[in-house]
Design a protein around this nucleic acid. Structure first.
Lengths: 189, 189, 189, 189
DNA sequence: CATGAATGAGACTTCATTCAT
DNA sequence: TATGAATGAAGTCTCATTCAT
């Protein structure tokens, strides 16, 4: 990557960061290109040198966010393998806290089909990726009905995420610990 | 109720039904007043004889949806008192299915602050009402950490609701039964 | 005039009074038919039984206002003839105070040609009527350049009226007295 | 001033000139943004790149007009100091003729409170500035009751301005001369 | 006579996107 | 590459007026 490409990459990153925050805060529709450009202190037109349009910018943000999540979710060696469910729950909320805006944007936008349709491929991959991780972990945990249990855990984590993003002072760590506790008891039994 | 009031009420109901479906399907921002008017086959302006604006229409829809939910959640006699948690879970999904569009709208819109701020009072009442029901039920179920457990159950139900609204052919009943099963075991223990 | 006509006349008067106040306060364009109907507690449609439209209502108001002014300006016998200028000045402000809203409306609207065009005939009559009175009075006062002086006095009275309508606590009576004083001195000389 | 600023300034000036003429001719309410844009041959939206809205455009026009008036009213050296009242009267009508549209707009709009309230600060400054000039000039002229006389002169000038703007072929210069004559006599006496 | 539901043209405004420089 | 002026379609909302009852 030469010097020009580096600069371009840096500019794109700045733009995407600003856009992510604004999208998460005000919603995709209510955030104008102007607002983004002003926040990064670039001209209105320059944005179109980097992205074909507003939708493409959104897609790019999702692509980056998904990548970050995947990296973070990738198990780092075998050391934590002894209890994958516990590990998965902890990782989920660690990632959530690391990139709160991304998750807020995702959770705020995924219910509206017009937007989803544009991103369906990405969204689906995202969902299935997480779903699969949970299933694997549950099978490792020796839990019956692993398919349903996976869906239930996925929904539970999603629900907690939602409430964490929605409510002030949400005791996400306490909830996470309670959840872990319940799975420990279920497995021991 | 005289002639005019009847006519007015009928028009309003038609408008709100159409708006609810469109808001749920395309999102609030992407649904134009024109789309709503065309769906009900009324003129653009008539809407403004009934509602001060798009936001007020949204509020009215929420008001009606919350009322319906409250009515449905009201326990009908003593027959199901023996296990309130179970009852609550079943009721939650029964209500969800009864007014899918309302819940889709609610879940699709609640993450975006500008809209939420206008509805905060209503939203808060909604949330606290459901939260309180869960807490009562959990205390009746003799479960430890009732506060955290209530939040966890609330999040779980929210997460399942989310996924039911999001994914095709989601096995909401199976998930619900699994959840109930787990609470039964927890209580028995 | 039979009973029905009397009632009709009374209704019209109520409407015109309300409309006059609203027009004067908010301006003609910013006052809606709805506002008027609500103020008089009649239905929106009923107004159109009395007037062909908003413009006609305005014309009717002007017609009535001009009539009132004419009646008030008509000299009541010969007793005050000895000093017609003084008399005219006093009368002007007496009439102004009697129907402040009418004059506010008139002064607020007369500068905009589209409105004026509709009322031109009435406006012209109004203007010429007052102009002529002043000229007569000035000739009686033995003042040189009676034509120009009439125009100047007319403008002065109009200007004072304007400022009286525009500014809080405007000392219209003091100004009027000063003006009278100056004409007395001019005549004596 | 760089290329963009030049372009911007030129566009703004064109817009404001067109808007001033249209506002003065048809009134503020009856002049649509579209009319202005069409007159300058620009698109509807461009106007909103420069002004936050119609009201802001109006304010800007007033700001510019007031500035022009202030510049014109500033005494140019000592040569005319010997008779300030006379000078002030002449200047008033000179300025009036220089920017007829501005004064027509001002006189046409100042009676309607909603618009005035938005401009009150500017209007007040305008008024007080002129008022103060007159008072100073009257004191210099050795006239008794300078406060009331100032108000009377101000009203007179306003009234003449009004009639000049209102009536075709109004002999404003003759009236002005007559007015000056009367003040000369008053001072001499 | 009286009602107010209904209409629809037209107003203001926003904003993604294009383009000349 | 970078700028921001310019576009124009589309959105929300207002309101005089009509009309069935």
């Amino acid at each position: 990557m030469n010097k020009f490409e580096q600069q371009r990459e840096q500019s794109k990153q700045q733009i995407e960061e600003a856009a992510l925050i604004l999208f998460a805060e005000h919603g995709f529709e209510k955030t104008s290109i102007r607002m983004i450009a002003q926040r990064v202190n670039i001209s209105l037109g320059l944005l179109y040198n980097y992205y074909a349009g507003k939708d493409e910018l959104l897609k790019e943000i999702f692509r980056r966010g998904r990548q970050d999540a995947q990296v973070a979710l990738t198990p780092d060696g075998d050391k934590n393998r002894y209890n994958d469910i516990e590990n998965h729950i902890r990782l989920t909320f660690k990632i959530l806290k690391q990139n709160r805006s991304y998750w807020k944007l995702l959770h705020g936008i995924r219910m509206q089909s017009p937007v989803i349709q544009k991103l369906e491929a990405e969204m689906k991959a995202e969902t299935e990726f997480m779903q699969k991780r949970i299933e694997e972990n549950l099978i490792n945990g020796g839990i019956p009905f692993p398919g349903l249990e996976a869906k239930l855990l996925f929904a539970t984590l999603d629900g907690i995420t939602n409430h964490y993003l929605l409510y002030e002072n949400y005791p996400v760590d306490d909830i996470a610990n309670l959840l872990i506790l319940k799975y420990r008891e279920q497995i021991r039994k």
